[in-house]
């Protein structure tokens, strides 16, 4: 038997959030997401949560599970101690239960222009990228924009203008890309008052990233690039 203590809140109906407990028998290998689906289908059809791919690729099901931000689809029930407390991502307005409004998160992401900006004189056919040039961005490519780093970052909690680890990691991904022509603009942008220098190097983003990326390292690299202006 396992007990799920799930954060419940409907801003249109409730004044305060509360935790609701559900008990059921998990099968071997059952994930938190499958547990939530079990509750939805058998115990309480009013529970709201996000999910899509169920294989740690889409980033929809990031939530705060027993004290750590994790993907519900990637976390098995048997590795956690019951009762399992589940909350939504922090620093974002709750729409209902475990569903948060990701608008601020994606607004910051859009601000760093997350796409290749053509160089002044683009090649006639296509940009050729060597293996070495490609390897330079390997460490920054796999972000699935789940929001775990944003939720775990105390600076995001204090400063809603702070770009956040997700946007800064993605900024470095384009700054380091040999095909991109927008490095100067991006470095100048992330050097703003709510940019890289607001990071306190707390490493929470690195600890929680379900894709084992290192946003703290990316931010440190951006800081050095901003100081030495080496694009």
């Amino acid at each position: 038997m396992v007990e799920f203590r799930v954060f419940r809140f409907d801003p249109e109906k409730n004044k305060e959030p509360e935790f609701q407990s559900y008990e059921f028998d998990p099968y071997k290998g059952m994930t938190i997401l499958e547990g939530l689906y079990y509750i939805l289908e058998n115990l309480d059809s009013s529970l709201a949560f996000r999910s899509s791919c169920r294989e740690a690729v889409c980033g929809s099901c990031a939530m705060h599970i027993n004290g750590i931000y994790r993907l519900a689809c990637k976390t098995q029930i048997e590795i956690l101690k019951s009762p399992i407390t589940i909350r939504p991502l922090s620093h974002l307005p709750v729409i209902k239960d475990l569903v948060v409004d990701l608008t601020p998160f994606f607004n910051h992401f859009k601000e760093i222009k997350p796409y290749l900006i053509p160089k002044e004189s683009p090649p006639e056919k296509e940009y050729i990228q060597s293996v070495k040039e490609r390897e330079k961005i390997n460490d920054w490519l796999d972000c699935i924009l789940c929001g775990a780093c944003y939720g775990s970052c105390p600076v995001c909690a204090q400063d809603d203008k702070y770009l956040g680890p997700h946007a800064l990691l993605k900024a470095l991904r384009f700054v380091d890309d040999s095909r991109d022509g927008g490095a100067k603009e991006r470095i100048a942008f992330v050097t703003q008052n709510s940019g890289v220098f607001r990071c306190h190097t707390i490493f929470n983003c690195r600890e929680v990233c379900p894709k084992d990326l290192d946003p703290t390292k990316a931010i440190a690299k951006l800081k050095l690039k901003a100081v030495f202006k080496k694009f």
Partner: peptide, 13 residues
């Protein structure tokens, strides 16, 4: 990318 940029924070850091 419309916020005011500040290189003083880079030098301060």
């Amino acid at each position: 990318m419309n916020q005011k940029t500040s290189f003083s924070s880079a030098y301060g850091w």
